[in-house]
Amino acid sequence: MEIVTNNCAALSNYEVLKHLQVIKDSKRKHKGQLATITYETLRYLENTPVGEQTSDSIRECMKSLSAFNLNKTELLMIINSPPITALEIQLIVEDSEERLSEDQVQQILVILANHFPHIVKEQSDNDNEEAPE
């Protein structure tokens, strides 16, 4: 076996999730390592916000975010784990204080909340669960 290119493209978690779901639902019974790794990876991905994204919502979101001069890996991270706080954006975007104004950060958060409403909901769900403690 030979490696032709060891990184010809980056995949978003959403694409991987969809591809693995197809493998899992195909009629042929998979056994052994493939079944193990698809099961484990699906379980991980389904527990992330990626589970409720759609290709349309991602495409629209990317369009709206194109105004902010973010690079590819930053966009990929934003789509894979949509930030809900300004602090998370600071982590993802390098030198975010210089590149983005506070208003822009807020705009990004609003855009993400509009396109992926479930991330905000999940957060408040968590809060409710924790409140009784």
Binding site: E2, V4, C8, L11
Partner: peptide, 10 residues
């Protein structure tokens, strides 16, 4: 976190 790698094999 995921990438595509192109490989060839017999």
């Amino acid at each position: 976190m995921f990438i595509l790698a192109e490989m060839k094999n017999v």
